[in-house]
Design a protein around this nucleic acid. Structure first.
Lengths: 331, 331
DNA sequence: CTGTTAGCGCATTCAC
DNA sequence: GTGAATGCGCTAACAG
């Protein structure tokens, strides 16, 4: 006995079975826009159930010009910061009964633009863009097509679309202040390869906070554990490793921890460390990282609220200092 | 001057502008299925460019009964193992010119089933299921609707859909053998809360490999860094921490590292550790983890090959031992 | 080689 | 309260 791949049931099938028209079936399936007599309603529901009717969202989308799908463009889902954000965004979208079309743009503006074009062709109802520093104003692309877009984590300098981001300024100041309370006066900063996006802001805030120390060391490396690991080993070998360090991202911090361990440099005893993302993983490194913790879930929820809800302006989120072990506290 | 939200350009618009029929426009846009005279072709292309024509994939999908979208159901994108897998799957799908609809099912069978139903309603062309241990045979659900599905990492025991997974058996044996080479005879194992899925297989392989030591310690905790961290602290406080340990997942290993650090237990000197996932992050922990490394990219590619390509049977992938520091080697 | 036309499955307007 | 009919944008079968 071969199982015949049940050919899809349509509205018309249900209508025929229930002895009504397709219009009536549509009304009961969607609870409107017009009322249906209770008796007919029952018949329709019964017929639909018996036939295992499943509305075809594609057909519905073509007709109603709304797909119930949102696009999520990500720099890199395998980076835990973006990964956690992605999960929360997907969840928030689901709460609003939207499906999520996802794409990784890497760190290329071209790929980002291309991805957005494809999402637009797929008629997404809205776009959430979680990009790293690079990439033009793709939200403008979307708006030209009549679909709204929101940036999370980072938006282009001259963009018109709302940006949901953490308060980098305050976060950095709190980190610096805390390290000072530990008695540190030379506080280094590990940034990305160049100043741009949120990390650029963080770097600037650090510079501003350190007017007292014009010789403060600025370190730079790629956004990867491997790069931070290698840099750390290099600095330790050279004898120029700072005693207090703020890393721009948790990936950086993790790499630093790994490099320091490999060289036998104890953290926090010989290196006090604070990181600025505050991903969930930062709580379970060795040692646990003191971080400024971004409210990722709240940010995700605000983003989809901005897209499909009532609010229209983004609030920058406070990233409170979470004290653990890497700064030198006994937490 | 208000920017009028350019109302979408349709095939008909282009046809009118080019002075041809919609059919011809369709043929040049899709390069087929019928040839078009070079001259007409040029006119059409010009018209399309001037109007900034963008094909509407929804309409195309309704007509051609193929959406160019695949569904990816994930247990939890914020788990690095699944996150990395997701990224590779998305990439492989893109290579085949498919968009990715993603959803997190958590660890609930109900949510998984629901997600699959929604994807099916969205008329996905195929389904990749990266589930944890729980969840019925959702691939059967898909097949009943005529769409093919593939499991990655784990498939139900009695399932009919192909399963792309690593060779857990061999991986565990290699890990045990390596720890023995280090002189360890009591080799503990940290598994999930109960035996199921791939971790269940790993646990069994460990038991099989340790017939020489009937007293080998089996540890269990939830799949989270936090749980492994807490368990480790508890065991150390109790004085029952093993000297050699294989963890079922990298999340477990990371938690163990964190807990051990917090209690001042040196790894690898007082605890030799090998983990079994081999996520990219395992290379930059403190200390770096010795792992059996699953070929995530290859697995992802095989999965989409299975869905949309020629091959029809899944090969289980070898997860080679990657020696780093946590086992006690000087790597 | 090109034009005309009939639906894909559904929501909705118009008649009743 | 209900049914018939129209069309969303596109592809493909059918004419020329």
């Amino acid at each position: 006995m071969t199982k015949r791949p049940d050919k899809p049931i349509t509205l018309a099938d249900v209508a025929r079975r229930a002895g009504t028209s397709t219009a009536v079936v549509s009304y009961v399936i969607n609870n409107g826009p017009r009322p249906v007599a209770a008796a007919t309603r029952e018949r329709v529901l019964a017929a639909a159930a018996e036939l295992h009717y499943r509305p075809n969202r594609i057909a519905r989308a073509l007709r109603s010009r709304t797909t119930g799908v949102a696009g999520l463009v990500l720099a890199d889902a395998s980076n835990p910061y973006f990964g956690a954000l992605a999960r929360h965004i997907e969840q928030a979208l689901e709460k609003r009964d939207r499906l999520t079309l996802v794409g990784n743009a890497g760190y290329s503006a071209d790929r980002q633009r291309d991805l957005v074009a494809r999402f637009l062709a797929a008629q997404v109802d809205g776009l959430v863009i979680v990009s790293a520093e690079e990439g033009g104003d793709v939200a403008a692309q979307a708006e030209a097509a009549g679909v709204s877009a929101v940036y999370v984590h980072h938006g282009p300098p001259d963009g018109h679309a709302p940006v949901v981001a953490a308060d980098n300024q305050t976060a950095v100041h709190e980190a610096v202040a805390h390290l000072r309370r530990h008695g540190h006066r030379r506080i280094a900063f590990l940034a990305g390869p160049h100043d741009a996006g949120p990390v650029g802001l963080r770097r600037q805030a650090w510079t501003a906070a350190l007017t007292g120390d014009p010789d403060a060391v600025l370190l730079r490396c790629d956004y990867s554990r491997a790069a931070a690991d290698a840099l750390t080993r290099h600095l330790i070998a050279e004898g120029t490793m700072p005693r207090a360090l703020i890393t721009a991202t948790d990936e950086h911090a993790t790499g630093v921890l790994s490099g320091a361990w490999a060289c036998g440099l104890p953290v926090p005893d010989r290196l006090a460390l604070i990181s600025l993302d505050g991903t969930p993983e930062s709580a379970h490194t060795a040692p646990a990282l003191t971080v400024t913790q971004q409210p990722l879930r709240a940010m995700a929820e605000q983003a989809v609220e901005l897209l499909f809800g009532d609010i229209s302006r983004a609030l920058t989120a406070h990233a409170p200092l979470v004290i653990r072990r890497s700064c030198g506290c006994e937490a």
